[in-house]
């Protein structure tokens, strides 16, 4: 029953974090006015601040965190590696490449949906390549190597586009986007990303049972009745969809996909299948808190969420790598 308590605790923490994100800001809105605005009453100003600025932003941070946390947990289970995350498969980098591409050619101004759509197309293309490799190859190591290669190649192309950026404006736009942020997101942005995010999460949760048996290694898991190809395909597809939606919504946000599953796994008896939900909830909570912190930090320019996540996450990443309990070769 401790898992039930973990779920309830994380859910409560997530709700509190979103509530706090709505309360805190340059214009303080007291609780009772916020409640009134939530149910369509109160002052017009309060309603605009809540419904068009703070709530969509907080929900975007939560959803992006949930997508990255669940994808990270599933990929760590599939690849049997505590340092795996959506970035490892090249999905994040390819999504970033899609976005950078449209910015370079100046299409980004054509509509608010252009950059997210390009990011999502990039993520889908990478997912397709990885899925193909997942079905064809006999080993997970090949899968990781294909992902690393894809990631590096996308990174090289991004560097090329930044290098050749036609105007300082497009350069700054590209760099800004690469930093990752949920500022100025509206409910329209959320609704555009939601179907892909939901589909990705559904695929991941539907296939989580196989992650438990992969603990034994691929050979024993196959012997125990796991369809390895199907498992790989589902996890890669689910993580690709969820990550693509997350990158389309917020740009590149690293580390939370590694750190959240790692912190949650000991709380669920190291079962990768059971770590999915807590990882999603915890990562959503962390990003919401980090985004609120970025908003209220007394800096001249507002900090980007991706920067805050990396500043918090990178040291934890090193700590995980050093403290890793090696149970196999």
């Amino acid at each position: 029953m401790s898992e039930r308590r973990l779920f309830l605790g994380l859910t409560a923490a997530g709700v509190l974090a979103v509530a706090a994100a709505c309360l805190i800001g340059p214009v303080p809105i007291p609780g009772e006015r916020l409640l009134a605005a939530l149910f369509g009453g109160g002052e017009v100003g309060d309603r605009i601040v809540l419904w068009e600025i703070r709530l969509p932003r907080a929900l975007a941070a939560t959803l992006v965190g949930a997508a990255l946390g669940a994808s990270g947990a599933a990929l760590q289970g599939l690849l049997r590696n505590p340092l795996a995350e959506p970035g490892v498969l090249g999905v994040s980098a390819s999504a970033a490449l899609g976005a950078t591409f449209v910015m370079y050619f100046g299409f980004a101004g054509a509509g608010p949906w252009v950059v997210p759509a390009a990011a999502f197309l990039g993520a889908l293309a990478a997912t397709a390549v990885i899925a193909l490799a997942a079905v064809r190859t006999a080993s997970m190591v090949t899968l990781i190597l294909v992902g690393v290669g894809l990631s590096s190649f996308a990174g090289a192309l991004i560097a090329l586009l930044t290098n050749l950026a036609p105007t300082p404006f497009s350069l700054s736009e590209m760099v800004q986007w690469m930093l990752g942020s949920v500022a100025n997101r509206s409910f329209d942005d959320l609704f555009a990303a939601a179907p892909f995010l939901a589909a990705g999460l559904a695929v991941l949760f539907g296939s989580r049972r196989g992650l438990a048996v992969l603990t034994l290694g691929e050979e024993a898991a196959a012997g125990a009745g796991l369809d390895l190809r199907r498992q790989r395909l589902l996890v890669v597809l689910g993580a690709g969809l969820a990550t693509g939606a997350a990158v389309a919504l917020a740009g590149v946000i690293g580390f939370v996909g590694i750190v959240a599953p790692h912190l949650m796994r000991p709380l669920v008896a190291h079962d990768p299948a059971r770590s999915l939900l807590p990882s999603a909830l915890f990562a959503g909570f962390v990003l919401t808190v980090a985004d609120t912190a970025a908003r209220i930090a007394p800096t001249t320019t507002e900090l980007k969420l991706g920067v805050v996540a990396a500043l918090l996450g990178a040291p934890v990443f090193v700590w995980i790598a050093v403290r890793r309990r090696v149970t196999h070769g």
Partner: peptide
Amino acid sequence: GYLPQHRPLAWPNRVRDLVAL
């Protein structure tokens, strides 16, 4: 049932949970 030659364990799972697999 199949018990392969190499039996790498990815995570420090409890004995009962491994048997349950």
